[in-house]
């Protein structure tokens, strides 16, 4: 019965909501006074709730930054936890305003799904996790393995490409949610758990015995993760896109959560333009002049958010790697605010 209800609501949603597709997201968010943001169902470092229901993580900070820019209050976010397979339907149907859930940017998602990727918050790649006791050192030793994966992900498809290219056999068991996936892997149903590497590390924190498991060196795909919005609302698309760019530019120009107020008073032209002392760049987006100040005050710049959630300052301790700024050996690069 529940299923039938769900089916009907998908149909109804599809039939009705599409009227909201046109350029109104900014208005409906401000009218509501609340941003509705799709996140994962619990992925430490990216989006996970604590026992009081407070959400933290890099993906969560993107939501908060948007709320700060639009509503001047980073707490005005309703987080909607979504499994990999339900996330895009939730965005299409208008249940959420933006999807910020470790979602890989691919051509088909950007086009046929009627969605638009706004940028890359984290450059990732897919990897494999195995039990140390198996004494496997390379993914090329995985012939005939059973592999647990979450359904509705790019990972589900990449595995096949990799095993086929290397002439190996495998068995893929696909689960609806992350919890079921890792529970089955931990119980030994699968030899391998596969996902984006960052998520392997994040999920390992949830294991009963994290140290019994290791991530193999091979990275088999490109997984640029980023936020998405619906097609057909250019203004909202710009707002979400430039919120992330603002965080990256802030890092590049040395603007931090601590010094942002001071920097706003600085006489440097590029700081004045970005922080609203000069011109009306924020207003051209449909926001206020001090939109970047609000963002950085709320979540810090990109580097700060990265460190706090997934980097050196977090339980995950992931190295910045590819996610360093372009002028520091990475590929994070944002167009200039001018």
């Amino acid at each position: 019965m529940k299923r039938v209800c769900m089916m009907l609501s998908v149909l109804a949603a599809a039939a009705v909501t599409a009227q909201a597709a046109s350029a109104q997201t900014l208005k409906s968010v401000t009218d509501r006074g609340m941003l509705s943001c799709g996140v994962s169902q619990g992925l430490p470092g990216f989006s996970s709730p604590d026992d009081k229901g407070n959400w933290t993580g890099l993906d969560v900070d993107v939501c908060r930054a948007i709320a700060a820019a639009v509503l001047n209050d980073p707490t005005k976010v309703k987080f909607v936890p979504l499994s990999a397979k339900d996330r895009f339907t939730a965005l299409q149907s208008g249940e959420i305003d933006v999807l910020s859930r470790n979602s890989t940017w691919t051509l088909s998602r950007d086009t046929a799904l009627g969605l638009n990727y706004t940028g890359v918050t984290y450059y990732d790649g897919q990897g494999f996790m195995v039990r140390k006791a198996l004494k496997v050192n390379s993914a090329l030793e995985l012939n005939s393995a059973s592999i647990c994966v979450q359904t509705g992900t790019t990972n589900e498809q990449n595995v096949g490409d990799y095993f086929k290219a290397n002439n190996m056999k495998y068995e893929l068991i696909a689960f609806a949610t992350a919890d079921e996936t890792i529970k089955s892997y931990e119980l030994g149903r699968c030899d391998v758990f596969t996902s984006d590497v960052s998520q392997l590390y994040a999920m390992r924190l949830k294991f009963a015995a994290p140290n019994d498991h290791t991530v193999l060196p091979e990275v088999i795909s490109k997984e640029p993760l980023g936020p998405l919005v619906r097609q057909g609302d250019d203004q909202w698309f710009d707002i979400v896109k430039w919120t992330l760019f603002a965080m990256i530019n802030a890092e590049e120009l040395g603007v931090t959560q601590k010094n942002v107020e001071e920097m706003a008073k600085s006489g440097k032209p590029e700081l004045r333009r970005m922080l609203g002392g000069d011109g009306n760049l924020g207003e051209t987006l449909g926001l206020s002049k001090d939109w970047v100040v609000r963002i950085v005050k709320a979540v810090g710049n990109y580097g700060e958010a990265f460190d706090r959630n997934v980097g050196a300052g977090s339980r995950l301790g992931i190295a910045r790697g590819l996610n360093k700024l372009w002028n520091q050996g990475g590929i994070q690069y944002a167009p200039p605010i001018r």
Partner: peptide, 22 residues
């Protein structure tokens, strides 16, 4: 829930999320 590939899981689940044609 347990990864058995029935119609609902592979078609209304995986295929749906890949094609978006709900």
């Amino acid at each position: 829930a347990i990864g058995y590939p029935d119609l609902f899981s592979v078609f209304a689940g995986t295929a749906l999320s890949q094609t978006g044609q709900a």
